[in-house]
């Protein structure tokens, strides 16, 4: 099982690189869907493992919720938002894509550097799964910084959430069920609100460019 998890954590990290290299908003959503599916798969494998060893099935429920929410419902919501805005492709970046990818690599190296001697996580050998998932959080944050359009910000936020979830999952073998449920409901609310905000920003400024929000400063 350990091998499966290693492979999956690398694949999840890879999906965030793919996300970073994308320009089309439609493919942001697709990549996010794939990433969520991978996370659901991870949760499923761990859930089966825990069910067979300890008899708990809450991780499996979490897995089902992930599939329902992150793989189906939220991408569906985002697609609806996508059809309503006129910007389909990100054109101007603060940094160009090769540099972004390079920075992402640096982030992974930095996470390795930072986490490799943290007590409690590394049992004998360096826990690469945690390194990968912490990198995912930072890459999500960096994705939010690098994109100017509001949908990019939402996707970045969701990637951060994915990263937090998978970090908690891999570091603790499943958090208490109630905590997971709480986080999911928070995230769902956040995405709903953000989706509405995208419409509003689009209406008010004729664009979803976050730089327009500067005008709100007092």
């Amino acid at each position: 099982m350990s091998d499966f998890l290693d492979v999956l954590s690398v694949l999840i990290l890879l999906s965030s690189f793919i996300l970073m290299a994308n320009k089309r908003i439609k493919s942001y959503i697709q990549t996010f869907r794939i990433q969520s599916a991978l996370i659901a798969l991870t949760a499923g494998i761990m859930g089966i493992d825990i069910l067979s060893k300890e008899g708990r099935f809450d991780v499996l429920i979490v897995c089902v919720i992930i599939i329902a929410m992150k793989v189906i419902y939220i991408p569906h919501l985002l697609n609806k938002a996508y059809t309503n805005v006129e910007y389909k492709i990100e054109k101007d970046f603060f940094l160009n894509i090769p540099i972004l990818i390079f920075v992402c690599c640096m982030i992974v190296v930095f996470c390795y550097f930072s986490i490799s001697n943290t007590g409690g996580i590394n049992l004998g050998i360096i826990n690469l799964r945690v390194v990968n998932s912490v990198s995912l959080i930072l890459i999500g944050l960096f994705f939010m910084i690098s994109r100017k359009k509001a949908i990019g910000q939402i996707i970045g936020f969701l990637v951060i959430e994915n990263g937090l979830f998978i970090t908690a999952m891999l570091a603790t073998q499943g958090m208490p069920f109630i905590v997971d449920i709480g986080i999911f409901i928070d995230m769902l609310t956040a995405v709903l609100i953000l989706g509405i905000m995208v419409f509003k920003i689009n209406e008010k400024f004729d664009s979803i460019d976050m730089n327009e929000l500067k005008n709100l400063r007092g």
């Binding site: 930072s114 986490i115 943290t118 930072l138 944050l141 960096f142 910084i145 005008n215």
Partner: peptide, 25 residues
């Protein structure tokens, strides 16, 4: 510092996280 740009605020958060991780190390 308080420019009103969301990206600037995100960069502050990013730098804060990086510094904390560096401190951890």
């Amino acid at each position: 510092v308080q420019t009103g740009s969301i990206h600037a605020y995100l960069v502050y958060i990013f730098i804060a996280v990086i510094v904390l991780m560096l401190y951890n190390r």
